[in-house]
Amino acid sequence: MENLTNYFGRNIKDKRIVITGGTTGIGKAIADLLVSLGGRVLIFGRDQEDFKNAINDIKQQFPDAEIYGTPADVTKKEDIDKILKLTDDELGGLDILINNAALPADGLTGNTYEDYKYVIDTNITGYLAFAEESISRMKNQKSGHIINIGSMSAETKSPESTIYVATKQAIRGFSTSLRKEVNSFRIKVSLIEPGAVTSDMQTGTKEEHEEKIDKMEMLKAEDIAMSVLFCLSQPERCDIVTMQIRPHLQII
């Protein structure tokens, strides 16, 4: 087998990569890893301060990094268009899309139409919109990879998070069907479904998260980034279709 350094880096270096929700949590960890391997990465998130902190941190860690982006909200068509223009202008196209921007949500009772519509627009419509635009750029080059970050909530179906479950079930079905739709264009589609991961989406303090990580009841964002890298590193003949990652002691 070839050197593992080459194996894991060969499909990343100089690739044009967009990460939705790339300023915090899982998205930021993915950005760190792919930038470190020479990827040309564009990130965005809706919070301006988070975006500024993420860009500054990446530039500090990797002074030669090609990192681009701007604050943007996946629910706004004008922001989607802004990101796509930046992708075309700065990256000159697109090779890899990481669909990651998502919001947590509780049960249906006690929520308003406006509350869950915004979650649905973020967690579902945002994924569809960026997948559509990515495919339009990838299909002519006969290559590309879309990774959708889902959730084990699609399997556990907790009654405390009905709205979130609905969105992640949708992403599970969408990923399965989309792979069949774009297969002939030689575009890969992978679905990664994490269990509990430390992030802003999780309840509890940072200290409580660290305690759960020590107890093997929660994953680090870096664990999901490594899973993304594994999917991206496969040879052209090989598709990782679905990957589920759970903390060792999270019984699902």
Rank of each mutant, 00 (worst) to 15 (best):
A131M: 09
S233G: 06
Q48G: 03
N100V: 01
M243L: 12
A221Q: 05
T112C: 04
A29D: 00
L91I: 05
F51S: 06
I124R: 03
D214G: 10
Y164N: 03
N3D: 13
V165P: 01
R16L: 00
P159E: 08
L219D: 02
I171S: 02
G69L: 04
D115G: 11
R137Y: 07
P247A: 10
E160K: 13
P104K: 02
G93C: 06
V228P: 00
V18F: 05
Q61E: 11
G69T: 11
Q234W: 00
M1P: 09
R186Y: 03
D239K: 11
D223K: 06
T20M: 07
N56M: 06
E132M: 02
S36A: 14
S36Q: 07
G25F: 01
C238L: 14
I30Y: 04
D106Y: 11
I251D: 12
R46W: 06
L191A: 01
D14V: 06
V197G: 14
S161R: 10
F230K: 06
G22N: 13
I213F: 05
M201N: 14
P194A: 10
Y127L: 12
R172S: 09
Q202K: 12
T109R: 15
S36W: 03
K139S: 11
M226I: 08
T125H: 13
I146N: 02
I224H: 00
T242H: 10
A170P: 07
R172Y: 09
T5K: 15
K76R: 15
E133S: 11
M218W: 04
L128E: 10
D73W: 03
K117S: 14
A102Q: 00
T176H: 10
E211P: 01
A166M: 13
G144F: 01
L108A: 14
N6M: 09
N99Y: 07
Q244E: 10
G25W: 02
T5C: 07
E2A: 11
K28Q: 10
H248P: 03
T70S: 14
A105P: 00
M201P: 08
E236K: 15
I147F: 09
C238N: 13
N123L: 04
E78Y: 12
D115F: 15
S175K: 02
F130T: 12
M201K: 14
F62M: 04
I120H: 02
D57N: 11
R137V: 04
Q60P: 00
F44T: 09
E155S: 12
A54P: 02
K212Y: 04
K52T: 13
S227G: 09
D88R: 06
A72E: 11
Y113L: 15
D32A: 05
E133I: 02
T125C: 10
I146P: 01
A170N: 07
T24K: 15
V165D: 04
Q141D: 08
A170F: 11
D223I: 08
F62N: 12
P71Q: 07
T162C: 02
M243K: 08
Y113Q: 15
Q244F: 07
S143G: 13
L33R: 12
N3R: 14
I58N: 02
